[in-house]
Simulated assay, not measured.
Amino acid sequence: MLRFSNFLFPESRDPDRDAEVIADCVAEAKLCDELGVEVIWLAEHHFDGNCAYVDPVTFAAAILAATKRIKVGFAVAQVSLHHPMRLAEQMSLLDNLGKGRVIVGLGRGTAYNVYEYQGYGIDHAEAGERYEEAEGIMLKAWTSPQGFRHEGKHWTLNVPRLRPTPYTKPHPYLIRAASSEDGALHLARRGLPFLMNVQSLETTAKRLAAYRATMAEAGFGAAHIARCMDESWVWRNVVVADTDEEARRIGVPAFEAMQEHRKKLRERIYAEQGIIMKKETVPPARVNPDLALIAGSPATVAARMAEIEQTGVGGVICSFRLGPMPAEVAARSIRLFMENVAPRFTTAAVPAAAE
Rank of each mutant, 00 (worst) to 15 (best):
D244E: 14
L185M: 02
A177E: 01
A299Q: 11
A125C: 12
N158I: 09
L42K: 05
P324K: 04
F4Q: 06
I334N: 03
D95Y: 04
V240W: 07
A223H: 12
M338Y: 08
Q78M: 08
R304V: 13
A205I: 04
P10S: 14
S179Y: 07
K278Y: 11
A134S: 07
A134L: 02
V301F: 03
I250K: 05
Q259N: 11
L2H: 07
M1D: 10
A184I: 02
S92L: 05
T204V: 06
L81I: 12
V76Y: 07
R262H: 09
H171C: 09
T300Q: 11
V287M: 15
E202M: 00
A302R: 05
W155A: 10
E280L: 15
I276D: 10
G312N: 12
T67V: 09
E280I: 15
L174H: 09
V26S: 13
V234D: 02
F9A: 05
A75R: 05
S319W: 13
H261D: 03
Q78G: 06
I334S: 02
T311E: 01
D242A: 09
I250M: 14
M1V: 04
R190S: 08
E133D: 08
M196A: 06
Y211S: 02
I22Q: 09
K153W: 11
D18H: 11
F345L: 00
S80A: 10
R190Q: 11
Y115R: 03
E309Q: 14
L31H: 03
G36H: 01
A88Y: 01
N158C: 10
E267Y: 00
A226F: 10
G219D: 02
R344M: 00
E126T: 11
S180Q: 10
R344G: 03
L336Y: 01
R262C: 05
M215A: 01
R13N: 13
L8G: 14
V198W: 09
S232W: 02
P145Q: 00
G128I: 07
H124C: 07
C32A: 14
F220I: 09
F220N: 09
G251L: 11
P324G: 06
A177N: 02
C318P: 01
E116G: 10
G314D: 00
G274D: 15
S319Q: 15
I269V: 12
P84V: 05
L157H: 02
C228D: 02
A223T: 12
P253N: 12
Q90A: 15
V79F: 08
G183V: 03
P56F: 06
K264V: 04
D24H: 13
L31D: 10
A257Y: 08
D55T: 12
P289W: 08
M138T: 04
A257I: 14
A27S: 14
